[in-house]
Every structure is written in structure tokens, then in C-alpha cells.
Amino acid sequence: MPAGDQVSLSHLASITRIVEADGESALHKSVHQVLVRMLETSILAHPRISRLIDVWEGIAGTANERIAGHLHQILNHEPDEKLVRHVFRCVSSTAALRGRQTGNHSHFFDDVIDRIVRSRKDGDKSLRCECCGYQFRNRDVKTERYTKIVESGFELERSLFPGRSGDPYKPIDRGNGMTWTQLTIDHVIPEETLGWSDPDNLEVLCMFCNLGKLAYRRPLEGLSSFAVGALAEVPSNRKWGQLKHQVVVAALSALGGTCSQCAKTKSDVELTVRPLLPKDGSINGFLPWNLKSVCYICLANEGDELPQLPSAEGLEDTIGVSSLESTLGHDTE
């Protein structure tokens, strides 16, 4: 579709259904998540919805009815109650109201810790990142949060788990005396995309996972960024950067928080990623679906030798150079 052409919601919805029905690979899921996000943001950005933010204080009592009515006109059918509730929460969130009041979610820290306490296993005293399972140390926690953590029965680690300090895919040092292991509170649905600041939309993350997910709501949503991220290890000695960072965090999130070898979860172990050797004809590169999640215990047991990717020398043209050039239209010349 040429740039500048209008894309209807019904058109997006039909493409989404086709992609969903066509396959269940990670690439299908990624395209599907991009399309779902486009549908969601198109609804939230629609003038009928976005203008409610400016008059919210005067319509709060009838907001659900107004939103349902607007969605009916936008979608041309009766909206699902879950969609109405989601739009309500986004529009009423502190992010939507930031023009008149500054969003602040740090004071929800105690409530988030209480939620984790209610859901943790009996006897489990570890406080972990809810994305990768990193077990927080004393030095990762701000002084004002330490008391709440200890009073809630958590025991903080004194040192890093063996194997983490030398992991090329999860660095520790951020520079200027800062680390990637700092404990943070972050939005599940990002505040930048109208996520609300309530305990049910907040989670405990290490700084690595927090800053790696950017403004994505779903783990494989940033498909275009991941396509570029395929070059994150080209050349092989490239330094750590944002390309590699976002791919690692997306993979950790998308792979379900489970070690691919021992099946332990992020509630019990810290997870990292390692490359999968490409199969004949598969898409190469540092991409979320070319990585596996694995815990440091399994890496220690197997010696943690990074797989050597095949060199370009002698590789067969499995995708067909002529057809690829035709598809790209020689736009790199």
C-alpha cells in the first residue's frame, strides 16, 4: 500500500486474522502482535477516544457508556466488554492525564511487593526480576525500599550467581558506576503507551529488562527493530549496544520464562539466552526466535561454550540471491 493511503481498521483486522490463521511460528506471532498493536493504538488515537482525555473530569461518571458508544461507531458493531474496560483504563490513567499531573508510580512499591508475597511459593525467600529471574542483591536496592523488602520476608543475595558476571548477553556494568542489576518498578503496559499506574499494571524488573523492552507491550511487537537487530553481532566482536539489548529482553519475555533444558522457571532460577544454530534455509541473525532461554545452572553443567555459527565460506545460497535482489528492487545500489 503506497505511503499516504488511508488504512481502515477493518483492513487491519482482516490482515490480522489471515496472519493468525496462516501459522504459529515466532515470525507469525511477531507480525500478529504488530498488527494487534496497530489496531489498539488506532482506537486509542481516534479523535472520539483521545478527546475524552481533555474533558475527563466532567464525564467520569458516564465514561464507560461514552466509550462503549464511541467504540460502537468506530468499529460498526457492539464492542467487547474487555475492550471497553481496557480503553477506560488507558484514557483515565496517569499517563493520559500527564498534561495536568505528573505520573508517579514509585509509591506503589509496597503494593507490588505485597502482590509478590501473596503469589510466591511457600518457603521461597528470593526476590527476583519478573522477566528474567535475576535474584536481587543488597546493593541493587535503594535504601528506602530495603525495609519493606526485609519485613516482607525476602532475603537479598550478597553476590552474583556464578556465571552471570561473564555473560556476554547480560552485562552488569552500565558505566559511570551504574549497573544493569538495579531493582526497578515498571509498567506491564508501558506508561508511554497509556498504561496505568496501579499495582496490577506494575512489576519488579531489573534495570536490564526494564530498559530493554522500551515502549513495547508484547515481547515480539518490535518486529522492525528486531529485523535490524539481526546485525547485532556483525561483525562478531561488536560491542554491547541497544540492538542486542532489545533482542535479548524480547527473547527472554517471549520464551515464557522457562529454561529450555531443565524446565525450571524464572521463579526459581535466573535465565539468560544463547544462540540456536541456524537450520538449513532458516533466517540467520541475532533474532529473538534464533535464541533459547537457559539458566546459569545448566550452562555451568555443560561448560557454557557459545555455539560457533558457520562461516560464510562454503555456505549454500538457501534463499536464492536472484529472487532476493528482485524483491528488494536493487534499492541498495
Results as ranks from 00 to 15, higher is better:
Leu271Tyr: 05
Leu291Gln: 12
Leu291Trp: 11
Glu270Gly: 04
Gln261Glu: 14
Ile283Cys: 11
Gly281Arg: 12
Pro288Thr: 13
Asn284Glu: 14
Thr258Ala: 04
Thr265Glu: 09
Pro288His: 06
Val269Leu: 02
Ser267His: 13
Val269Ala: 00
Ser260Ile: 03
Val273Tyr: 05
Ser267Cys: 04
Ser267Lys: 12
Ile283Val: 15
Ser267Ile: 04
Asn284Thr: 13
Phe286Glu: 05
Thr272Tyr: 03
Lys264Val: 00
Thr265Asn: 08
Pro288Ile: 13
Lys264Asn: 12
Lys279His: 04
Leu271Asn: 02
Ser282Phe: 09
Leu287His: 12
Leu271Glu: 03
Cys259Val: 01
Lys266Met: 07
Lys266His: 10
Lys266Ile: 14
Gln261Thr: 11
Ile283Tyr: 09
Asp280Trp: 05
Lys279Cys: 01
Trp289Tyr: 14
Ser267Val: 01
Thr272Leu: 07
Leu291Val: 07
Leu277Asp: 01
Ile283Lys: 13
Asn284Leu: 02
Ser282Gln: 15
Asp268Lys: 11
Pro275Gly: 00
Lys264Glu: 12
Gln261Ala: 07
Val269Gln: 04
Phe286Cys: 09
Lys279Tyr: 00
Thr258His: 00
Leu277Gln: 11
Gly281His: 12
Arg274His: 04
Gly285Phe: 05
Thr272Ser: 14
Ala263Trp: 01
Gly281Ala: 13
Thr272Lys: 06
Trp289Lys: 04
Leu271Gly: 02
Leu287Trp: 11
Asp268Glu: 15
Asn284Gly: 03
Leu277Val: 14
Gln261Pro: 01
Ala263Asn: 10
Cys259His: 01
Cys262Phe: 03
Asn290Cys: 07
